[in-house]
Design a protein around this nucleic acid. Structure first.
Length: 401
DNA sequence: AGTCCACAGGAAGGGCAGGCGA
DNA sequence: TCGCCTGCCCTTCCTGTGGACT
């Protein structure tokens, strides 16, 4: 492109009518004024939490539901309204929301406690203190609140799977240590079977109330997308069937509203980039591919070095061998690559864990199978499109060779 | 029915970096 | 500065296991 046409391009861009009116409305971060198809859950949660306005005890509550079923949105909305009501009624209420999956923020017991304490105004160093000391500081700050404190722990299942339920046990017993403050926990989990991981005592004290968020069906997703697209897109850019297609695709994937919104927004971006005045169902197909590709490639790029080399080994084997690959083969190839690039290889035990992590991220499929006389192993495969595989492969080759 | 393979995956602990408090 | 504590990544050692083979 010569410089004149570049100038024209920018001029065109400025003058062209945008497909979007307010793209912000089409992100999952945006909090709509009305949460569609979640009235029942809002009412129920509000009625569970309302007693704190009369300084009456609350029940610890667990909220279950898949990704993108509106759990966090509903909890944040109810929290906000509850805090407003408490202020009007001159009741001391503090609600702390923490996402336990936030890397480097609340993904260990120490970090969670430190983050909770920080929310109450206590200064806690990132590391260095004994955990007991962080508990003490946190409890002291709680006591200073002299009212009700509600701890909302989002994605709590991820944290419990990582560090166990000890911290939950301590948090549920905190009320016996405090005189002026009452503490209640609202746990949010993506995993319906989460309580199986919990100690029986923790389970019974934490699950006094339970709230289930069912996945959205395609019709509900259509309503959500219509609500957002009304002011999110410019008038009449959406062609017939686009919203329905986004909703249908997202409904297939566990009724995930976040996914539906991403599809719709990315479809718009693709349409805009291709100079199209309308968004068509073909754009939705492209958006579906792009989201899948971006998600995987980004996941690969953020992996540690050895996991990337491991993936490189799997991709190499995937090209040469037909069918599934065994752990032993992967480990041998991985060691060869390490040798070639002058890196000390990790042990098979560690590689076993890295394989599990890649599996959890959905980059590879690893299934434990038994080959009878020939042992037990993971059967590893990659079901990414060849296009995505090539992109990952060239990224890894560029980085290591 | 028993054996045996090729791992899976749990437990314990080492070593390092970052940070606190005396 | 030193002792202590943390998270994190990793190794070592170990037990467990599904099912083909004998």
């Amino acid at each position: 492109m010569d410089q004149k046409s570049l100038k024209d391009m920018f001029a065109n861009y400025v003058n062209k009518k945008s497909i979007f009116q307010d793209k912000n409305l089409l992100t999952s971060v945006f909090k709509p004024s009305e949460i569609v198809h979640r009235n029942a859950q809002i009412q129920e949660l509000a009625s569970i939490l309302a007693p704190c306005l009369r300084n009456t005890d609350l029940s610890n509550t667990f909220i279950y539901g898949g990704v993108g079923t509106g759990k966090t949105l509903v909890v944040k909305r109810v929290s906000q309204e509850l805090e407003n009501a408490a202020r009007d009624a001159h009741v001391n209420l503090k609600i702390i929301y923490i996402n336990c999956k936030m890397k480097k923020v609340a993904d260990t017991e120490y970090r969670l406690l430190a983050e909770l304490a920080r929310n109450l105004g206590e200064v806690v160093p990132a590391t260095g203190l004994p955990t007991d000391e962080v508990y003490n500081r946190f409890f002291k700050k709680l006591e200073d609140q002299e009212g009700t404190v509600i701890l909302v722990l989002d994605e709590i299942d991820a944290l419990v799977k990582k560090i166990g339920d000890n911290f939950l046990y301590n948090l549920t017993r905190v009320n016996s240590e405090l005189q002026h403050t009452k503490v209640f926990v609202v746990g949010i989990s993506n995993d319906l079977n989460f309580t199986e991981y919990l100690d029986a005592r923790v389970r019974s004290s934490l699950s006094e109330e339970e709230l289930i968020f069912p996945p959205y069906n395609a019709i509900e997703l259509v309503d959500i997308l219509l609500q957002r697209s009304k002011h999110g897109f410019s008038d009449s850019v959406l062609q017939e069937g686009v919203i329905q297609k986004c909703a249908a695709l997202a409904a297939q994937e566990h009724g995930d509203a976040r996914r539906a919104l991403d599809l719709l927004r990315v479809s718009g971006e693709i349409a805009e980039r291709s100079d199209s005045e309308h968004i068509t169902t073909a754009h939705v197909d492209l958006a579906q591919q792009k989201i899948e590709k971006d998600r995987t490639v980004e996941a690969v790029k953020s992996q540690p070095k050895h996991a990337q080399i491991l993936l490189s080994a799997i991709l190499t084997l995937n090209k040469t061998s037909s069918g599934n690959i065994a752990t032993g083969d992967v480990y041998t190839t991985y060691k060869t690559i390490c040798n070639k690039i002058g890196l000390t290889s990790l042990t098979q035990r560690r590689i076993s864990d890295l394989l599990s992590e890649l599996d959890m991220l959905g980059i590879i499929n690893a299934r434990v199978i038994s080959k009878g006389r020939y042992g037990r192993t993971r059967s590893i495969s990659i079901d990414l499109s060849t296009h995505v595989q090539d992109q990952i492969d060239s990224f890894l080759k560029e980085k290591f060779y």
